[in-house]
């Protein structure tokens, strides 16, 4: 076999592997959507769940998922940015940095159910936050932070040293170089990492069962005062999310239409993640173009 044939063979194998992955993904997505979409209606998306009878919706769970996502990203993104910038730009190569890096690596490989139990012990019991959005958001931060930090650090490191030199040689301080040269250039990478993190948070169930709770009390969507107990914005109320809802229906649901609700909720979950990805990518590109002045 000569080099040309080998090349053809290798290319063929790579194509086949890629094809299998796409096929797997497509069939999984297709299955969930075909099973679930017929059950999705405006009523399904907006009405509260029912525990014993058919016809329940996922309105509150859907809102909870989004709210929890926003809250946990609000907490974790600034911390991840700070930690990532420190590790990539300022940390000296010594044992303290090594310890921090190792800690981040260990944290990122913790199973989410362990993070959930930790959150239960610390946020729910010790800090007395109860089963609440706040406990859930903090647990998700624990779960998400290591990977986000790692992503920020890696994205910053991808920017070539020559760019930093250019900034410094122009009389920019180190901080100005980071903020005005390095970060704009690494923004697409950072945004992609944030999207992946957000997707994980949106679909996470195990870390939330013991922290955000498994009940979704009725909400009054005309009350936006975060201190009222029935307000959707109240961070101290228990909040079952979509992913937790799916898990719960399948493990202990006694609704006559449990299977249908579960299928519909799964389809919505997947669509939401998909939509979120597309939107964030679009915004990321816009932001990049704006910051790099390619208007």
């Amino acid at each position: 076999m000569d080099a040309k044939q080998k090349d053809k063979l290798a290319t063929g194998i790579l194509y086949a592997i890629a094809g299998i992955i796409v096929l797997l993904l497509a069939s999984l997505l297709g299955y969930i959507l075909i099973q679930g979409l017929p059950h999705v209606s405006w009523h399904f998306l907006t009405s509260p769940a029912k525990a014993f009878e058919a016809g329940g919706g996922i309105g509150i769970q859907l809102f909870n998922s989004v709210y929890l996502l926003v809250l946990s990203m609000l907490i974790s993104v600034p911390i991840a940015l700070g930690a990532g910038i420190y590790l990539a730009e300022y940390a000296k190569a010594n044992w303290i940095t090594d310890v921090v890096r190792t800690a981040i690596e260990i944290l990122s490989s913790l199973p989410s159910v362990v993070v959930g139990l930790f959150g239960f012990l610390v946020f729910v019991l010790q800090f007395n936050f109860g089963f609440s959005i706040l406990s859930g958001a903090l647990a998700l931060t624990m779960f998400n932070l290591p990977l986000l930090t790692r992503n920020v650090e890696d994205s910053l490191r991808q920017v070539s040293f020559a760019q930093r030199e250019a900034g410094l040689a122009l009389g920019l301080s180190r901080w100005e170089t980071v903020i005005h040269v390095v970060i704009p250039e690494s923004l697409p990478g950072i945004i992609t990492g944030m999207i992946l993190g957000a997707g994980r948070v949106f679909g996470e169930a195990a870390a939330l069962i013991y922290t955000a709770g498994q009940s979704a009390p009725a909400l009054n969507f005309s009350d936006w005062n975060p201190f009222d107990i029935a307000s959707p914005l109240n961070p101290i109320r228990p909040a079952e999310t979509l992913a937790v809802h799916i898990w719960k229906i399948n493990s202990e649901g006694i609704q006559p239409d449990a299977a249908a609700v579960s299928a519909g909720a799964s389809a919505v979950l997947i669509l939401a993640v998909l939509l979120f990805n597309i939107l964030a990518r679009f915004l990321g590109n816009r932001l990049y173009r704006k910051m790099t002045a390619e208007s």
């Binding site: 030199e165 900034g167 009389g171 704009p184 002045a293």
Partner: peptide, 27 residues
């Protein structure tokens, strides 16, 4: 920082920022 404003530097590899030409120059 002030020193590097007085003593500028051009490198072996062209290293423009990924911005517009105008923004590079007035950065």
């Amino acid at each position: 920082v002030q020193l590097r404003k007085q003593v500028g530097m051009v490198f072996q590899q062209p290293n423009p920022f990924p911005f517009s030409i105008y923004d590079n120059v007035v950065y």
